[in-house]
Design a protein around this nucleic acid. Sequence first.
DNA 1: CCCTAGATTTACT
DNA 2: GTAAATCTAGGGC
Length: 186
Amino acid sequence: MTILPRTFYSRDTITVAKSLLGKKIVRKIGKHEISGIITETEAYRHKDDSASHAFRKITERNKVMFGEVGKAYVYFTYGMHYCFNVVARNSKFEAGAVLIRAIIPEKGIEIMEKNRGIKDRKKIADGPAKLTQALGITKEHYGVDLTVDSKLFIIEGVKPGKIIASPRIGIKNATDRLWNFKISIK
DNA sequence: CCCTAGATTTACT
DNA sequence: GTAAATCTAGGGC
């Protein structure tokens, strides 16, 4: 197992979003280990990106996007859902993060089924809020360092095939940018 | 298959 | 006050 180093995240946010495809998220809860392969991501940057939470200014919620790369940015939205991002940017930007939108369950599938209350493996973590629920990610994980072996981190995974670029989902601004990336599921 | 409504915190056009 | 980087259940086609 190789944990992705901090330097992996200190590149352009778009590059990191594409590079994260095929990598694995590992979540440890007590003695249980849950993991999944990342299949869909989205890049969010700073002043050049009107759809980003960091577009206007730094706030209590988004401040981790301005902090050290390789950390978790977890936010709560629509009154019910958490979404999980990884802080990533190069030195040209003051803020940036990659939203993890979907994973393929690998280990600990029983735990995910329990967390989600459903058994359909295809639907267990195929959306940003589904994935956080399946992995048990909440605001407790805001700012967690993902480059050290603790309860939540990201490791090397499989080599992705063809990457498909699309407009980002659920936003109204900057929809001309193809910053949603996914790999086809076998 | 497609569409709609409702859940209800956080931040601010 | 209301829109938001969303999901689910339920009804119609």
